[in-house]
Write a protein that binds this DNA or RNA. Structure first.
Length: 506
RNA sequence: GCCUCAUUAGCUCAGUUGGUUAGAGCGACGGACUGUUAAUCCGCAGGUCCCAGGUUCGAGUCCUGGAUGGGGCGCCA
């Protein structure tokens, strides 16, 4: 039976052997501090010259970052350490000593890190994110299984587009064109008529040339579909589902969230009811015509812009002050380095803030001039969710802007019964779904309206000919959910090897 | 497809109005020192200033075009 770092608390004061990699190392004449990582966690190991002897100690002191080793030593409680324990080393076996590991313990640029993705996955932040991803995936399955859903796999090769507008990746399927799946939903509907409640969990491909923090070319989507469910049942399901997953992460990923420095207040708020708004209502809020808790979006955004400007000014003042101090001289070298590093960090922050400074006025403009009847843009979602601290569900959309398969509101046919769930803190659309059209004639009209080839939808129309029932479902973007839960600046860090516009390797 | 910002040492960045031999920190390497938390201190090495044209007595700096990357819009989860 092997021992892992996560289980050290059960081995207090006994001697164990750990196998792993040198994450970092500090050395002196008689002591070496090795931060060992074994995939399950991180642990400081102290090697003493008096214990190891000259030869072994010299070997250990030469260990490069990410060298692979096996360490035997005593487990000692030490509250200063991450896991609360450290190892007093008795012996070290070197599996491989390596040198010149490319990723240093310092700030790197995103392009460099993405090129080193195969190695970057080993670093602490990425370790934490991948473990949150694992917990999210596992809890998604747990939720649907406990609710009686049947998991199904939709095909990845498809002969048609579910929604004509999106760009598809074309491949060659024995001489005829085929497209990589951009949604398993239509197949999910067929399966729901067989199983009652189903969910898909699979990869999705979209060749949108989008370079934003929310887009990947290959991402994972979860698509439940439920027979005898309407739009309101659907919203209940979305809410229960998202609440459950967030709760599971909060319970099982404490160490990871702490490592990511995630403020969990907003996540804990998901126990409260989510906000439900009709499209009309949401538009009024976006345009600043309707207040939320005494404030309009316009006022909030203008305040955000003012805050951003003030932040930039104070960071610049801080830099100037530090530069002045350094120039004045008399500072120790260590202090100078510290100040230089801080200046670098501030400059990076200023760059990000300056992008906000450029973007916020655009968003403000777009919100003020929002045309009723249009779909929300990314910035409109940001503006809307900025007003609330729980997820927002917007439903009953103008039918023209939504997919052909959505049901019309029988009381007001201008609206289609779609629903989008927008995550707080500016993360925007995480879920899109709705109640499906059950009337065959309405569907045929819509397919024609969208200029889609009727023949490939014949099988889909069969679902309306044989025992058609009200049904609803939604699609959840796994990476967007993880990005929000971890509060990451970009979805690219939520998937082991991201595929996006301009990025196919490694 | 459109808009915008950027590209200088292995990495993160300075480089003033165009002006002599392009700088710093981190990392690497050599040494000193220490229950250290990105330790600290001393020393040393390290450059096709993204590419191609142009303006100029003179270009890292200005202009034109291109490549690559960041961010935003459209589109979407």
């Amino acid at each position: 039976m092997k021992t892992y770092i996560k289980d050290l608390s059960t081995h207090k004061d006994s001697v164990v052997t750990l196998q792993g990699w040198v994450q970092n190392k500090r050395e002196s004449k008689a002591l070496i501090f090795i931060i060992l990582r074994d995939g399950s966690g991180f642990c400081q190991c102290i090697a003493d010259l008096a214990v190891l002897g000259d030869i072994k100690f010299a070997e250990a002191s030469k260990l490069g970052q990410e060298s692979s080793i096996s360490i035997t030593g005593k487990v000692v409680e030490d509250t200063r350490q991450i896991g609360g324990f450290e190892i007093h080393v008795q012996s070290i076996d070197i599996v491989q000593n390596c040198a010149d590991y490319p990723i240093a313990n310092k700030e790197h640029g995103i392009e460099f890190l993405m090129d080193q993705r195969h190695l970057w996955l080993r670093s602490k932040r990425q370790w934490a994110i991948m473990r949150v991803r694992n917990t999210v995936i596992f809890s998604i399955h747990k939720f649907f299984q406990k609710e009686g859903f049947v998991q199904m796999d939709a095909p990845i090769f498809t002969g048609n587009a579910a929604e004509g507008t999106t760009d598809l990746f074309e491949t060659d399927f024995y001489g005829q064109p085929a497209y990589l799946s951009q949604s398993g939903q239509l197949y999910g509907e067929a399966m729901a008529m067989a199983m009652g409640k189903i969910y898909t969990f699979g990869p999705t491909f979209r060749s949108e040339k989008s370079k934003t923090r929310r887009h990947l070319s290959e991402f994972w989507m979860i698509e439940p579909e439920m027979a005898f469910h309407d739009i309101y049942d659907n919203m209940d399901c979305i809410e229960d589902f998202v609440r459950y997953v967030v709760k599971e992460v909060l319970e099982n990923c404490k160490v990871e969230l702490e490592l990511l420095e995630r403020d969990t207040t907003i996540l804990e708020k998901t126990v409260e009811p989510f906000i439900r708004l009709t499209y009309d209502n949401a538009v009024a809020i976006i345009k600043g015509e309707q207040e939320v808790e005494g404030q309009t979006t316009i006022a909030v955004l203008e305040q955000d812009l003012a805050d951003t400007k003030a932040n930039i000014a104070s960071l610049k003042a801080d830099i100037a002050e530090r530069e002045e101090k350094i120039a004045a001289g008399g500072m120790k070298k260590g202090q100078v380095n510290f100040n230089l590093n801080t200046i670098d960090k501030n400059k990076n922050q200023i760059k990000q803030l300056e992008e906000d400074e450029r973007n916020i006025p655009q968003w403000l403009d777009s919100a003020k001039n929002f045309t009723y009847g249009e779909d929300f843009g990314g910035s409109d979602e940001t503006v809307l969710t900025r007003m609330f601290d729980v997820p927002v569900m917007v439903y009953d959309w103008p039918h023209e802007v939504k997919a052909f398969y959505l049901k019309r509101n029988p009381e007001n046919p201008r609206f289609a019964r779609g629903v989008d769930m927008l995550a707080p803190e500016g993360y925007g659309e995480v879920v899109g779904g709705g109640e499906r059209e059950t009337n065959e004639q309405m569907l045929i009209e819509k397919i024609n309206e969208h200029k889609l080839p009727m023949e490939v939808f014949e099988w889909y129309l069969d679902l309306r000919r044989f025992g058609s029932v009200p049904h609803a479902g939604f699609g959840l973007g796994l990476e967007r959910l993880i990005a929000w839960i971890c509060k990451l600046p970009h979805v690219r860090e939520t998937i082991p090897f991201p595929r996006m516009y301009g990025r196919l390797n490694p």
